[in-house]
Every structure is written in C-alpha cells, then in structure tokens.
Design a protein around this nucleic acid. Structure first.
Length: 551
RNA sequence: GGGCCCGUAGGCUAGGGGAUAGACUGUGGGGCUUCGGACCCCACGACCCGGGUUCGAAUCCCGGCGGGCCCGCCA
C-alpha cells in the first residue's frame, strides 16, 4: 500500500467535492505536501488563477487527513496531518507491512555477461552493480527474480585467447586464474596485430570448438572456466552473485534451429546468412549476420537462442546492457517478438565508465581492475578505523563492508545513462553523499536502540518537532520509491532516496534527544529511530550494501 | 555521412513545463558538560549557445557547439 496515495486520493476527493476536479502534484516543502496549481483551470474558465485558488479553498470541506489547506497565489496547498501520517507510517514499518508488495511472477535479469578473457574491470562493474541492484529491487517489489550471466565462450575473443594458450608461451603470474590467463589474451592480440594471417587459425579454432573438438573443449574448460571463477570471485566481494551461468556453447545446436523459423526475413550473401532488418522494421541498420560463410554461428544468432531460452523460462526478461548494445537489442527484441510474442523483454542501458586518459581496455591493459579498487578501498578504511579499538575480526568485517559500500554507492548514485569518469577520490568517497555516510547513520541509530529498551508501543499524538515531521514524511515515500525504481528500472532513485533519508535522520538526531526525552515523547522518538533503522537497513540491502551496527 | 545518449556552481550530481534551480565535494567561517564528529550549521558558487512554442522553458521543438556510443561474416 502506498501510504501517500491515501492522502493524495483524499486531496483529490476534496477538490472534486469543492467543484474543481483535478490532480494534485507534489509541493515544494515550504508550501506543504501536495499542491493544485490553478493555471490551466484559469485558462479553461477564463478566470484569474489566484481567484480560483481562493474559491477552491472557500468551498473545501474539512478533513482529518490535512491540518492545513490554503491558497498561496494561484496554488492550493495541502499540508498533511502529521499525527495521522505518523500513525500509518510507523505502524506499517514496525509491523513490516511496508516491505510487502503484491506478488508479480517471474523475471530473469541478465547482467554483466562480460567476455571471459580476463579479470573484471571497473567499467564492466557498472553493469554488475546496476544489474544486481535492479534484481534486488524487483525482488522486493514482488517479482520472483532469477539472475543470469551469459558466458560467451564461443566468440572470437575466446578463440583468440585459446589460440594464445596453444601457440604462445607467457609467464603466468599471480594466484588467481583470471590474472594468469589474461596474459595469453593480451599476447595473442599483440601477435594478431603483427601477423594478421593468424586470423585464419583463430577461425579454425572457432569452427572446431563449435563442433565439439575435445582438445579445445578441455582447454576452454580450464582457461575460460578459470577466468569465470575469477570474475565470479571478484563480484562476490562486492555482493554480486548469480543463479545461473549459461554458456553459449550449450546453445549452439539450438541456435541452428532458429533461422528456419524466421525464413521470410533471411537472406544469403556469399554463403553467409543474415536477417533483413529493414523488413523487420529496424531502420538504423540493414543486415544482422547470423552465420559466417564457413557455417559457424555469430553472436546475434546465439543471443537469439539465449533469449528464446530465457523467454521459455520466464514471461518477463530484462537485459542490463552497455549503451553500445542499443541497436543490437532493438533487433533482438523484434525477433523475440516474432518468436515469442506473449513475452516481455526490456533493457536497462547504462553509459560507460571511462578513465581520465580514455576508454578502458583489457587488451591494451589500460584498466582499473575491480579487485584493485576493493583493495585500495579497504586500505583507506583501515586507515580511518585503526585507532578505534576493534578486534582484528571486527576490523576486517567492517573494513570490507565500508569499502564495498563506498564503491557500490558511487556507481548507483548516478543516473544510469550518464557517463562516468573514474576517479579514485570519488569512487572511494566516505563523506557526504556516500555509502559510508548512510552506513554511519545506520550505526548511529543502532547505537541509540542498543542503549535503551523499548516495547514497540508509541503514541503519534506526541509528534511535534519539525524534524520528526520531516522524517516521517520522507519515510512514508518508501513504497512509491520502490515502485518507481522497479517499474522504470532506475536503481539510482533508491540510492538518492537512501541518502536523503539518512541526511534527514542526522538532522533529527541533532535536534531531538531520544533517550533523555520525557516519557511519551521518548517512546514516540524510539519508534522513529527504530523505523528509520529498519527502513535504511532495507534500502542498503537493496543497494547491495551491508549495514554495520558499529563502524 | 546517418542514428541514439549526454551537456546544470571550480569538481561531481538532482530536478525534466509552474513558486526563491536542490544536494555533495571544494574554499572560508562556526558547533561536542548533549544518544557515535565518517556528523551538523552558515557563506561563496551553476542551467553550453541561438531561435521557436507557451500566461510561464533548465525542462518541449528546431538549429548549432562540445563529449560518448552505434551503423562489422566483432561481441
């Protein structure tokens, strides 16, 4: 139940009864909670908007839901009755009702799906963090969510890696397989640039691998599998996990059955096959190639097979993709629309993270690896908490929680489609609008609760301080924030909301003593602190950030 | 050449027809006999440019400029 819509509906009911039906909007804070601008009505009725606003107020009946309804210029402003709102909001949180949403069926979220050619870098991590967070939000919103990673082991990149493994000798350094094996990939690419004729050998690897060549399968299992283990381990450190890894090679046979199903869009050119995209209604591109002339499959074909596989498992599918996939996705969506018209396919696009010196590139070794970012983050956190007298074990746990909190929040706090330039000091910011700020605020609230006992009873009649009212109003927005983030696939709104809530709590904290407050007020404030803590903990969880009790 | 996305204080980012453009960081000041100073308060500082639509444009439309991406028998 969206708490504020109870009040919004009531405001609109009052407007109707006053003879001026219309929709209210969110008001600026200093004017109240909802507002009804009278400009368009003024135009319709050819009257002065300010006079209309006056008349609306004159004809309005009283309501226990609002403590004040008044006109300011051409606006009719509604101020919610805080006692009523506090009662509804706090009991909804304390009983856990606020976290329950209607069940909505199954959805598969595919994210990351980075080529398994080396360790995960920070650029790709934006995909993982956004994808993981949107999955968490959808789960909260009532979906049965399954998270998948599409492992591209059939493509040219992996063939290049395997060519390197077979033909080159490199120093394998480091503990983890992804760091060891990426050297083959980088060396193979260098070689390929020097001697373009190697291309043929790479093609041959693709051909053989697709047909199940045992030696190559074994190599892929070791090297691609090893790199995937590394990637999964890196992601696990920042709380990203998957339900299923789907390997492309497992879909090759299946993908070959697809072209006959869309024969009327299929064309041939020198032995290669493509889909006529114009005919499909995609204007921006002509041909989508499915087969090479040597008969091996191309990524679009395997991707169609994969989407078909997903569509059979779930009626709703979401891909988290870099903006470079926009056109490709448009084509895939059309094709799945033909093959599985009763399913829904959405994409969440994000812009790249680049370095001040340019785009990240695994090939060129111009990257910041996720692991390095996490390590550096932990180092900086440790610096701060060194003197706080935590045990070794506590210190280790807190250090990781806070570093990951900073990293995830930094990525999530920006609209997905805006480009990010990676800078260490921003990615590892612990102050102000940051993950650690929110975690710290949670720890503060926790600290109050620990110092006192409370039987979960409260009386909303005691609400009076402006900071109490502001905090309740902000908390009441939780359901609509979740709904917006889930429906528009915009996880950043949850990050922004979590920050504003924490920030508001800190202001409340400054002005409103809790433990020392007199009886009545004290219980009410404890209900506020408890509710804030429950809410912010949930929001942090949605952002994939742990909520430490002390830090 | 064509298409898509982005342009808001020194840096980073909300708002996406409506009231005085909201934060964070930075810089300068201030606040613990008070529940945790990774906090709080005050000040400074911004809508890329030019037209148009509108009672009203940071927001919508058109045209520039700047940045990113796409238009592969790569993925």
């Amino acid at each position: 139940m969206e708490i504020l819509s109870i009040f919004r509906d009531e405001a609109e009911r009052l407007l109707r009864n006053a003879g001026y039906p219309g929709k209210v909007e969110q008001a600026r804070e200093e004017f109240g909670d909802f507002t009804f601008p009278c400009f368009s009505l003024a135009k319709e009725r050819k009257m002065n908007p300010a006079l209309i606003a006056k008349d609306v107020v004159r004809n309005m009946e009283k309501s226990e839901y609002f403590e004040k309804i008044e006109n300011v210029g051409a606006y009719v402003n509604f101020t919610i009755n805080p006692k009523k709102l506090a009662e509804i909001t706090l009991s909804s949180i304390i009983q856990g009702e606020i976290f329950k949403f209607e069940e909505k069926g199954k959805v598969i979220v595919e994210h990351t799906s980075a080529n398994p050619t080396g360790p995960l870098h920070v650029g790709r991590t934006r995909n993982s963090i956004i994808g993981d967070t949107v999955a968490r939000i959808l789960r909260r919103f009532g979906y049965d969510v399954e998270v998948q990673y599409f492992v591209n082991d059939v493509g040219k990149q992996v063939a290049t890696l395997l060519w390197g493994v077979k033909n080159l000798r490199v120093e394998e350094e480091g503990e983890r397989e992804d760091y060891r094996y990426v050297k083959y990939y980088q060396a193979a690419y260098e070689e390929l640039e020097k001697r373009p004729e190697i291309e043929k050998e790479v093609q041959e690897i693709i051909w053989k691998y697709e047909r199940g060549d045992q030696e190559l399968r074994n190599l892929a299992e070791k090297y691609v599998g090893g790199i995937m283990r590394g990637i999964a381990e890196s992601l696990k450190r920042i709380n990203v996990e998957f339900d299923e890894f789907v390997w492309e090679s497992s879909l090759v046979e299946r993908s070959r059955k697809i072209p006959p199903m869309i024969k009327e869009y299929l064309k041939e050119e020198n032995g290669a096959y493509y889909i006529d995209l114009k005919k499909l209604g995609v204007e921006e591109k002509d041909k989508l190639f499915l087969y090479r002339s040597d008969g091996t499959t191309l990524y679009p074909l395997r991707d169609i097979a994969y989407h078909l596989y997903k569509a059979e498992k779930a009626r709703y599918n979401i891909d988290v993709l870099g903006e470079d996939h926009k056109l490709h996705f448009q084509a895939i969506k059309r094709i799945i629309g033909l093959l599985k018209p009763d399913t829904r396919l959405d994409a969440l696009f994000y812009s790249f993270v680049k370095l001040p010196e340019g785009k990240m590139s695994t090939r060129k070794g111009r990257v910041v690896y996720l692991d390095d970012l996490v390590e550096e983050g932990m180092k900086r956190v440790e610096e701060i908490i060194r003197k706080r007298g935590y045990s070794e074990e506590e210190k280790k746990k807190i250090t990781k929680m806070v570093a990951v909190g900073a990293i995830r929040f930094h990525i999530l706090n920006v609209q997905e489609e805006k480009p990010i330039t990676f800078k260490w000091e921003n990615a590892l910011n612990f102050e102000g609008e940051s993950g650690p700020f929110i975690q710290y605020t949670h720890a503060r609230a926790e600290s109050i609760m620990k110092k006192t006992s409370w039987d979960r009873s409260f009386n909303s009649q005691y609400i009076s301080h402006p900071q109490e009212i502001k905090l309740v109003k902000l908390m009441a927005r939780y359901p609509e924030i979740i709904k917006e983030a889930a429906m528009k696939l915009t996880p950043y709104v949850v990050a922004k909301y979590a920050y504003s809530l924490a920030s508001q709590f800190n202001q409340f904290y400054r002005d409103c003593p809790v433990i020392k407050a007199e009886s009545g007020i004290r219980e009410f404030r404890l209900a506020l602190v408890y509710s804030f803590k429950a809410l912010i903990k949930d929001l942090l969880e949605l952002l994939g950030i742990e909520a430490p009790e002390k830090m």
